[in-house]
């Protein structure tokens, strides 16, 4: 190694650390903290017939006299009106059940891919990722065609003689679950696959040698070792589903009251940006709870990703 290069490395070492740390912080500050502060500021304003449609939080009354006006009614309204609580609860329930369904369906798929022969794995992974090449919106629209009462699914079931009259699936909660399960399954499979493909399979052989049946070995070896993948996949599904708007709007019926739709109503129909912002802040706070819990859990698991 030449002297110059060594010196360059030392110099980089000096500035490199703060620089590499600064970049992600800058990113977070610019694309997370700043938007958050803007939304927080709107949530403390009052709606007004101006452009933009809310009041400013402060203005200079006189030289040296700053008037600050903070409105907490939005948070109170969300708290007082049971509509918001029930929409939040329903969103959490839908997200929890969807996550569970994704896990039940995604785990065997990820397991099968991870244990498939090497040359098959690439193809199988491609099949999981390939739908992303089509726009998400178009894929959800496609489900409208599939699920409607004169659609191919009902035609098939009728032809097979499994049903007498077409099932009403579209615009029900069931359609919402189908749409979510379809759209979010890859987000469960991919982290699970990443985890399972690194599993040390000799541990299972050892378990078999010591007389453990395959199912027991799965429960006592594979499952605990893949906890990190399960957590990562569950978070990737749960968090976006809570705020999901497109799928319930297109596939759901009126009884599918989710927080995303309520946000839309407040923002568009009611032109009440402050209340919509307050709802968004509360949603964010609510979603932080599972995050913190899971981080604690991961630490207890020994920092395994």
């Amino acid at each position: 190694m030449s002297k110059n290069r060594a010196r360059a490395l030392i110099r980089l070492g000096h500035w490199g650390r703060p620089l590499t740390i600064a970049i992600p912080y800058l990113w977070l500050g610019l694309f997370f903290l700043l938007p958050f502060v803007i939304v927080l500021q709107i949530s403390l304003a009052e709606p007004a017939l101006t452009q933009p449609p809310y009041t400013a939080l402060w203005h200079w009354v006189d030289e040296g006299l700053l008037e600050i006006r903070i409105n907490l009614m939005n948070f109170r309204m969300v708290w007082d009106d049971s509509l918001y609580a029930s929409a939040l609860l329903n969103s959490l329930r839908v997200a929890a059940l969807s996550t569970l369904l994704c896990l039940l369906l995604g785990y065997p798929m990820a397991y099968a891919i991870a244990t498939a022969p090497e040359r098959w794995r690439v193809i199988l992974l491609m099949l999981i990722v390939l739908p992303f090449w089509t726009s998400f919106l178009i894929r959800v629209y496609a489900w409208i065609g599939i699920l409607k009462s004169q659609g191919p699914l009902n035609d098939l079931l009728l032809a097979l003689g499994l049903i007498e009259t077409p099932l009403t699936i579209l615009h029900t909660q069931t359609a919402v679950y189908i749409g979510i399960l379809y759209s979010y399954l890859p987000f469960m499979i991919l982290p699970l696959y990443a985890n399972l493909s690194r599993l040390d399979w000799s541990l299972l052989e050892a378990a078999a040698d010591l007389g453990c049946r395959p199912f027991g070995a799965f429960l006592r070896v594979t499952l605990p070792l893949s906890a990190g993948g399960i957590l990562a996949g569950s978070l990737l599904v749960f968090i976006p589903v809570v705020g999901e708007f497109v799928i319930p709007d297109l596939l759901g019926g009126p009884e599918t009251l989710m927080i995303g739709k309520l946000l839309w109503t407040e923002f568009f129909s009611n032109k009440d940006w402050p209340l919509a912002a307050a709802l968004a802040i509360l949603l964010l706070g609510l979603l932080l709870i599972p995050f913190v819990l899971i981080q604690r859990l991961e630490q207890r698991l020994g920092g395994q990703p």
Binding site: D81, L83, L257
Partner: peptide, 16 residues
Amino acid sequence: EIRALNRLWTRLKSNR
């Protein structure tokens, strides 16, 4: 009034 009406509408639609 509009906001009250819209919220009433949301309640009606979601049966809550």
